[in-house]
Amino acid sequence: MGIISRGFRGRPRDEGVKLPPGQYLTHDFPVLSAGPTPRVRLDTWEFTIDTETGQTHRWTWRQLLDLPSETPTVDLHCVTKWSKLGTSWKGVSLDVLMEDVETTAEYALVYSYGGYTTNLPLQDLLDGQAWITYEYDGEELAPAHGGPARLLVPHLYLWKSAKWVRGIRLLNEDWPGFWETAGYHNYGDPWREQRYQGD
């Protein structure tokens, strides 16, 4: 336990809620982005998966919406300390998108309109753990929150859930993304409090 801050009591403890270490509960949906919000046109929007052998799988906006969708309800944990519980989304599972993709790659580099990137092991995108989402709370996803579509991979800190997602590159070697090269943890498990490099 750290040093006691004299006179600090904190909020009443909510014993019913278990949060990852160092997180606090919020009911807002704060926005965090490193740059301007890109405005992405739906008529030219595309999502691609590139494999390590150079094969490309491509979906237009219409094609994405035509795929079977899921409506996950998940908890979000942002590295800036807030957690938001029970958020509802609609999108396509990465399992669906990866169905016809042949790969032995172990790593994924996710990239976005606007230039953002983030990396994670490919297995963290599979088995019902990740979606390309286009609705939040019953509404189309707002640009500030990553619309038209963002990756949702809620078991990792939220910076891994790339806003304005444009594609995924499958790689044999790990390729650190934007925040991962700017001092943040390479993997980012909130339950192990992997916020920064070395955590």
Binding site: T26, F29, P30, S33, A34, P36, T37, G114, A144
Partner: peptide, 28 residues
């Protein structure tokens, strides 16, 4: 921040040279 960044882009600034830090709650 959203407003300022949008204006800077409209004025011709390269989005890659606009660094932002946002804080506080939002209704969205």
């Amino acid at each position: 921040v959203e407003t300022a960044a949008d204006i800077l882009i409209a004025l011709g600034h390269d989005p890659r040279r606009i660094r932002t830090e946002r804080f506080g709650p939002t209704g969205g």
